[in-house]
Design a binder for these strands. Structure first.
Lengths: 334, 334
DNA sequence: ACGGATAATGAAAACGTGTTCATTGTTTAA
DNA sequence: TTAAACAATGAACACGTTTTCATTATCCGT
């Protein structure tokens, strides 16, 4: 610690950097000035050792490239940075197998909180491995127009963000039906992923309520290429559809391109398409996608709020935040 | 440290986790087994404190959402993870002002190396603030078909990755000219960014050599919306062009959409378009973009190589790696 | 001017590791 | 069998902070 060579004791330096402590103002100013000159910054590793706070937030994703995830990481990083935290990024293996190896690996870095944007890791698993870090969970509850379920029964509770999808899906189906859609297909995301199955459940409920029967199931995995191929199959091998609801926007792009460039069908005249997420690319003129928007800033602010509240009150009961969805109308329905 | 309650001294535990040390195999096995049961992992913060290695690599980007950057971060994170490092992500402010604040902030986390994917921060600045971390620089040297310049004269040298663009640009121009392009426009990236100006310089050289005169300059900033608007301007206010070379793929998408949906021109029949990067989205059927590819895996491997070599030999001379570019032909030229 | 409260200060301990050094136990070479 | 080389081991220290705790300086009300 060079700063004290210039003036006085080390605790004074420590106090100079911690606002709430008591230190004579002029002394603090002097220390900060000298620190500035010497290009000194308190070492977070040492600080973490004694305080038990690393100011690191672990983020686990299967694929940073996916536009939705990259946009979420972007917003999250900005928000965390503003609160004095940093994003520690980890990637799961491509097969989505959330092996304990990655978690133990991550644990070594001692993050204060962990957010897993990966469908097959439950907070129970996270909590089991990371003893100190707080797991934050993104949850898609089953819901109706009346409200949503809180699955408090199945095991211990963890802090979670509830994403309410009923409103957006209801609006989307209404719009498609309004433009004459009768045979509605659902393009799924990754097999058994929470987001995809929740959307499917809600869609089934909404369709049944509106007398539209069951959706035609098309299995995808959130990627463009799979969506493209699955759509071609749906019309070449299967019986087609007059509207497709995709579990995410990138999938919707694959659907649109397959319809237009492979099957020579028109969107929205022949087939209507709706996506989910409202990513940056959705307003690009080639797609101009009508989609169910999850407000990213709102979602990320809620996540950060969860983390901060949990860290300031470690013993509080399970925390909860809720965000809504709504339809953004563009040009792929009518 | 709970592990030693189960058996013996703490140094034994330390050695059990460091393979190169000498410890009786059976003892090591026992310790690892007990550690496993107790869910114990060595604390990296404490380790960093004494060893001076945090195993953190700071990555600074202006915008994680940008497909090219998110793909680079993705590949980099995977590669670093395989080498026992973790990615620490930071975002510059939206105005790209690389204020010292962010650097000091980052310095507190003590990264072992820093890669700044942001055009206006030179390694000199990085090195000035981060005393311990190693700056890695992505450089786009001026080059001709004969080779490329090494600007060794201007100040001290830092480890760098040279991206050679001549080959790809030469192939792109040749292809466009082969299909009859005579009036070639260049859509720039962000003002004075290294990548964009290097591409412009090389393009000018190649065009001059082929008797194509000077490129028509169109100023962009690597984003879709700006590219779209600038292209409309070029044709409505300016005199148009019969080919556009964009500084990046996302910009090329904006050009294509403006041409097709706003100006009612055909690509490639009326106007040819070439991009730069070859991002995931470039093969999407709506664009099917012919573009100059930078091999991402190769590029990232080179970056990781630079970091590892530098950390294992801190006093070695400036390190250098080089990657090539090449044209990927799809459907936007002819 | 006095007693008591409060602010300011530094010494020492603690956080969980890696490293050096000296000691002990074990193998190898003659 | 003996000396020498080597493997295995633990005690003590160091890394750069924050946090008690005890001490001293300063302020306030009367």
């Amino acid at each position: 610690m060079v700063a004290r060579s210039a003036n006085v004791s080390r605790v004074a330096v420590s106090r100079a950097f911690n606002p709430h402590t008591s230190l004579k103002p002029e002394k603090r100013a002097l220390i900060l000035k000298v620190a500035e000159e010497l290009n000194y910054t308190p070492d977070r590793a040492a600080r973490a050792l004694v305080s038990g706070r690393s100011h690191l937030v672990g983020v686990i994703v299967p694929d940073v490239c996916s536009p939705w995830e990259s946009q979420e990481i972007d917003a999250l990083t900005t928000a965390l940075q503003n609160e004095g935290f940093a994003t520690l990024l980890f990637k799961t293996r491509t097969d989505l197998s959330m092996d304990a190896t990655l978690l133990t690996y991550m644990k070594g870095f001692n993050p204060d909180a962990v957010i897993a944007f990966v469908e097959n890791v439950k907070p129970t698993i996270l909590a089991g491995v990371l003893d100190r870090a707080v797991p934050i969970y993104v949850h898609y509850p089953r819901e109706t127009e009346a409200g949503f379920d809180r699955p408090d029964a199945d095991g211990p509770l963890y802090d979670r963000l509830n994403v309410l999808q009923y409103a957006g899906i209801e609006q989307a189906v209404a719009l498609m039906q309004g433009y004459g859609a009768k045979r509605l297909a659902y393009l799924t995301g990754v097999y058994r992923s929470g987001a995809s199955t929740a959307r499917e459940d809600t869609l089934r409920k909404v369709m049944a309520d509106r007398g539209l029967g069951e959706p035609i199931m098309v299995v995808g995995d959130f990627t463009y290429d799979t969506a493209y191929a699955a759509t071609v199959d749906l019309f070449r091998v299967g019986d087609g559809a007059d509207a497709v609801f995709a579990a995410n926007d990138v999938g919707a792009f694959g659907v649109i391109d397959a319809l237009r460039h492979e099957l020579k069908l028109r969107v929205p005249e022949d087939v209507k398409v709706v996506g989910f997420d409202d990513i940056e690319q959705s307003h690009w003129k080639s797609y101009n996608l009508t989609t169910v928007k999850i407000d990213l800033d709102e979602r990320v602010r809620a996540l950060v709020r969860l983390i901060l509240r949990r860290l300031s009150k470690p013993s509080a009961g399970a925390l909860e935040e809720t965000v809504q969805t709504r339809l953004v109308v563009r040009g792929t329905v009518g």
